[in-house]
Each structure stands twice: as structure tokens, then as C-alpha cells.
């Protein structure tokens, strides 16, 4: 697998916008960005209302995902190009989510919405109408999704990568600094986790760093690339970005995203928590 099988740049997208069988999807938590302007032909997915179960804390189930993609007019053999705001956090999360339900052809737009905007490329407000499809999803591929017990078992045995900012890792902050800090869970990190913020895998314009830079980043931070990896953050979208870097770009075979992340782990009774710098 090469980088171009999973990641495309803005020039490529501009050249292939009208290709049959290609669907651009903008994914955000706040979809007002899409409503103000999006790449021509792109449909939107709302991370909060469309990908999360409205009652339980979990994803929409297989049937729900099939319904969602059918309604969006996405077919099983379509090439889906995902992009979004927040340095592609939610687009990377959607990428991982599409892979979880077995979609074959999906790629990320490198740099997402930010790079597109900083390049002053065209954004439109026309909302495309796509005919409905009959999408069929697969059962969740749990080889890429970690649950809380696996995380506790991974302490001291697998690579745990905490991709939050250093101040969230040490316990100084409970949430990313653009959010109010009042939270229910305890601050800190999973013992033996290495703190490698997601942002270190990206350039200022939101594009991913080169494979060589990425390999150096994780190796120097103490990650044994021959061992399994579990990545987590606060709710699992920033760690999807790192999952993408490790599993899709570097091609590591066993990388899981822990989507429960700190909002779950930091609320569990009795699990070990470490404060301060990594030990």
C-alpha cells in the first residue's frame, strides 16, 4: 500500500472532482462550516448527529450506517474522499469509521478544509442531490477498535500512545484548550503511555508529515514499531488521526483506536492513572 492509496492532495481532488464513482464527504462536528461553503459536489456528514448513537454512548449500528450511507447516496464501490475542519480530526475519525464498517475505497484529503482554505481554493454553497443507494456494510472490524479492558491489559505490554496535548497528558488541562475545562473525569493518563500529540504528525497547514518524519517521531518517542499499538485521546477523533498515520501511512499491522478514550478511562472506578510526565 502506498501513500497515494490512502491520502490525496488538493490538486488531485480538483482534477478528479467530476469523476464518476467519486464522492467527496465533508465531516465536522459543527456543520455550519459546510453550510457556509464546501468543496463543489461534497456531501456532509455530521459527526455528532449522524455517527453517534442518540441514546447510548456508541456508534450507530451496522443497519444505521447502511441507512446513513444509502441516504447520502454513497454506494459500496464508490471512492469516498473525506475532508473536514479541525485539521481533519473528524474526517480521520470518519475514515477509521468507514474502515470499521468495511468500506473498501476511502481516502483522506491531505490538509483537509484548512489547507484548502489557506490555498484560497473554490468553496461553494450548492448542496448536491445524490440518488439514494442500497448500501451494505460489513460487521465491525474490531481489529482496529480497542475497548477499555484491552487498554488496561495493554499497560506495560503494548504501545499506548496518548495523542492529547502535553498539558492534558500531565493532568494540567482536562480538555483541549479551545473548550471549557469543567469535566467529570479525573485528569492524567494511562500508565506507561507515551505522549505524542497528534499535532506532531502534521504540519502547520494540516498536511501529514512524510513517512520518514513520522517513523522518526514515533521511534524517538519510545514506540516499538514492531509491537501492537493502542492510540487514544479525549473522545477518539484526534487518535483517529494518529491511527491513520501509523496504520495507513506507515503500514503498521496492529494499531487500534480506543474511541472511549479519556472521557471513559478517566471516569472508570479503580483503574490506574498516572499524573505528570511520562515515566
Amino acid at each position: 500500500m502506498s501513500r497515494s492509496d490512502v491520502l490525496v492532495d488538493a490538486d488531485w481532488v480538483e482534477a478528479h472532482l467530476d469523476d464518476p464513482g467519486l464522492v467527496l464527504v465533508e465531516v465536522d462536528e459543527d456543520v455550519s462550516a459546510y453550510d457556509k461553503g464546501h468543496i463543489r459536489g461534497a456531501v456532509k456528514i455530521d459527526w455528532k448527529t449522524e455517527l453517534q448513537d442518540p441514546v447510548r454512548r456508541d456508534f450507530v449500528d451496522k443497519t444505521g450506517f447502511e441507512q446513513l450511507l444509502s441516504d447520502k447516496g454513497i454506494a459500496n464501490d464508490d471512492l469516498v474522499i473525506l475532508y473536514g475542519g479541525n485539521n481533519n480530526w473528524f474526517a480521520a475519525y470518519a475514515y477509521w469509521y468507514f474502515k470499521l464498517y468495511g468500506h473498501e475505497k476511502v481516502r483522506l484529503l491531505d490538509g483537509g478544509r484548512k489547507k484548502w482554505e489557506l490555498d484560497s481554493r473554490e468553496l461553494v454553497t450548492d448542496v448536491p442531490q445524490r440518488p439514494k443507494t442500497e448500501y451494505k456494510a460489513k460487521e465491525q472490524n474490531l481489529a482496529i477498535r480497542a475497548f477499555r479492558d484491552e487498554v488496561v491489559d495493554a499497560i506495560g505490554t503494548k504501545n499506548l500512545i496518548d495523542v492529547r496535548s502535553p498539558d492534558e497528558f500531565t493532568g494540567k488541562l482536562l480538555a483541549p484548550a479551545h473548550l471549557p475545562q469543567e469535566q467529570a473525569q479525573r485528569p492524567g493518563h494511562v500508565p506507561t503511555a507515551r505522549n505524542i500529540p497528534w499535532s506532531k504528525a502534521a504540519n502547520d497547514d494540516g498536511t501529514f508529515k512524510s513517512d520518514e518524519e513520522l517513523r522518526k517521531l514515533y521511534t524517538e518517542a519510545g514506540v516499538d514499531l514492531s509491537k501492537p499499538v493502542i492510540a487514544y485521546c479525549r473522545i477518539g477523533e484526534r487518535s483517529s488521526h494518529t491511527w491513520f498515520a501509523l496504520h495507513e501511512l506507515l503500514g503498521l499491522p496492529d494499531v487500534k483506536n480506543y474511541d472511549g478514550s479519556w472521557t471513559e478511562y478517566g471516569s472508570l472506578v479503580g483503574v490506574p492513572i498516572e499524573l505528570g510526565e511520562a515515566k
Binding site: S165, P166, A177
Partner: peptide, 28 residues
């Protein structure tokens, strides 16, 4: 795009400015 970097220059957060050019962070 407004990015918040900590005292070591490490990225901490980023927001897009609103209609009034405003950005806000909840720091420490």
C-alpha cells in the same frame, strides 16, 4: 486560524476565527 502553543512551543489547540475575527482559548 488561531493556534495556541504552550511555553515549549508545542501545539495545544486551534480554532477558526468567527465573524468578528474573534478567537478564544481556555488555557491554564
Amino acid at each position: 486560524y488561531a493556534r495556541l502553543l504552550d511555553s515549549t512551543g508545542e501545539f495545544t489547540a486551534e480554532v477558526v476565527t468567527g465573524d468578528e475575527g474573534v478567537f478564544r482559548f481556555f488555557a491554564a
